[in-house]
Amino acid sequence: MSTNSSPPSALQLCYEQVNGSCVKTPYSPAPRALLYAVFGAGAVLAVFGNLLVVTSILHFRQLHSPTHFLIASLACADFCVGVAVMPFSMVRSVESCWYFGRSFCTFHTCCDVAFCYSSLFHLCFISIDRYIAVSDPLIYPTKFTVSVSRVCIAVSWILPLLYSGAVFYTGVYDDGLEELSDALNCVGGCQVVVNQNWVLIDFLSFLIPTLVMIVLYSHIFLVARHQAKKIENTGGKGRPSSESYKARVAKRERKAAKTLGITVIAFMISWLPYSIDSLVDAFMGFITPAYIYEICVWCAYYNSAMNPLIYALFYPWFKKAIKVIISGQVFKNSSSTMNLFSEQV
């Protein structure tokens, strides 16, 4: 008798006075504090790091180029992840309860998916931009203009928002899984169960742009290698000034492509575990343990915090821009025309 009655007395609920409340399985104090610190640091870095990227590009006129506008828009998507997704997911992951209401759960899930695909679309367009820039750097300014960049940015925002809103606000994502969805979404829960069809669509939507980026960047580095060998063989002696200019432009574009290639690789590494786990889970009967799922989710979230660190490591202009912003020089009238590049091409 005592054995049967003790578990219910020790059972914790998300809402003690509410019938149908989810069971609460929180971490002990030390791991709980550590997780809040780790997840919170990621959210803070995603917010303030990407805010620095956006501020730098919008403030300094030297950075007003199609590529940098795409990078700024990508940073906006990552900033939105840090503001609208990560803080609430942090509470859910650590407390194992959702305290923000059912309506906001749907909105949160919609934002989560939309901003992920927005980042993916931005990176895909950036890879196309870099492909054109490296393949023919002198013709590039006439092909990939600011107007083209704006169209790419609009597509990168509108399509993900329409897709995610249509899927999660119509409820088609859990067709055939209604009983399981109802069981998981007790009061205080925010678990989205997606059926096989939509999981497959999501995976292909991730895989196809990723393959496009891999092909484009592979070609970019082959072209860059060929250009480097050509410059090395000519030795730079007796070249016309136009050839010297082309070589310097090509070198600059290759450096930019290399940095953005690292950004793409970081995105793929961050999101691939979650994409594979979602696919396996849907076709294997949702067998993934909760802690594995949380690890995959937060690896994906942390991608939004990684990009500013990559820029800080590989972009000298971003380092200079940060110093100007943090030191307060950004408020001077002449700061927007400052030279952020050590080399002029």
Rank of each mutant, 00 (worst) to 15 (best):
F318D: 00
V151E: 06
N339M: 07
R32T: 10
L177K: 06
L279F: 15
T288K: 06
Y163I: 14
L184S: 08
Y140H: 14
L207E: 07
D78Y: 04
D182R: 15
Y315D: 15
R150M: 11
N197I: 14
E232P: 04
I132S: 02
M338K: 10
Y99L: 13
P31S: 07
S342Y: 09
F39L: 15
I158T: 14
C296K: 00
I276F: 10
G171R: 04
V53D: 01
E232R: 15
V193L: 08
Y311S: 03
V53K: 04
T3G: 04
G165P: 02
F79R: 00
C80I: 07
N333Y: 07
P87Y: 06
A75W: 01
S275C: 12
A37N: 00
C296V: 05
E232C: 14
A290K: 12
S342D: 14
G49Q: 02
G49L: 01
E343Y: 10
A247V: 08
A305P: 00
L216D: 00
P31C: 07
L13W: 11
V94Y: 00
E178P: 03
F121S: 09
A133Q: 07
F60I: 06
V44T: 12
A114M: 13
I265E: 00
V54D: 03
L159G: 01
L180V: 03
I153A: 09
Q17P: 01
L45N: 04
Q344Y: 11
L63F: 06
R248H: 15
A30Y: 09
F79L: 15
V23G: 03
I139S: 11
L180P: 05
I201Y: 12
I126G: 01
F206H: 06
R252G: 13
A228P: 04
S278E: 13
P7W: 10
C80V: 07
F206D: 04
R252W: 09
I322L: 08
I158L: 15
I265V: 14
S327L: 06
S56T: 09
F48K: 08
S164N: 02
G328M: 09
C186F: 01
F125A: 03
S119M: 09
H122A: 05
V44C: 10
E343A: 12
L222Y: 11
L159E: 06
S103Y: 05
Y117G: 06
C111F: 15
M1A: 15
L211P: 01
S278V: 06
F60Y: 12
V345L: 10
S244W: 05
A305W: 01
V324K: 06
L35R: 07
V193S: 08
R239P: 00
Y274G: 03
